[in-house]
Amino acid sequence: MHLDHTHDGSGAVSADARRPDGTRRALRIGLGGPVGSGKTATVAALCRTLRDRYALAVVTNDIYTREDADFLLREAVLPPERITAVETGACPHTAIRDDISANLEAVEDLEDRLGPLDLILVESGGDNLTATFSKGLVDTQIFVIDVSSGDDIPRKGGPGITTADLLVVNKTDLAPHVGADLTTMASDAARRRGDLPVAFTSLTGDDGVRPVADWVLERLTVWHHGTARPEPATATP
């Protein structure tokens, strides 16, 4: 559906850029990737980095409901009312790609309850290399892999690796310990992705999420550029 298309009736149908009251909705960024690659840790780090300047919320798609949501709550990266868990019936990729209705409800409900938001992060349940987000659900997507699952993953490709708007290669601090060659990963990723960007991160270091946060800030600037609301919405408490 075209992003600038609006409906006359109540409620949005798909990824309409405007909410029913005519205001522009939050930017929606999807984070996908295999189990254990660091999606939830990346979401947590992004929240800590961005929450003072922007109004944020998070939707998680746990396999066993609430596991990731509970982690974010325990880490207190956002107030509880800003984190929603969607249940996926043993098929996390279905909920972000083939039947996005529960996730659309969750993102719309967050904005209805919390008022205008700048950014909603939608984290997929840990899945396989083919899992990507529907354009009906998110505006842009990040695919997170890590060095310890094998440095041949960028070469193997798959829709997540080749088409995600940002590829994140996480846990670079482990590379020497698992025999992962970061140079090979970078050149394989470049071959698979053409001009699409790749970020290497180690979330154990200070401000380790910075390359991802900078990319998110660019996306936010572009998103706000198309709105009547150029300033950030009120910061989260």
């Binding site: 969607v86 249940e87 098929c91 909920a95 039947d99 209705s101 529960a102």
Partner: peptide, 11 residues
């Protein structure tokens, strides 16, 4: 079964 109306998450 592919009609996207949310049934897949319910048993």
């Amino acid at each position: 079964g592919r009609f996207p109306a949310g049934d897949h998450a319910h048993s």
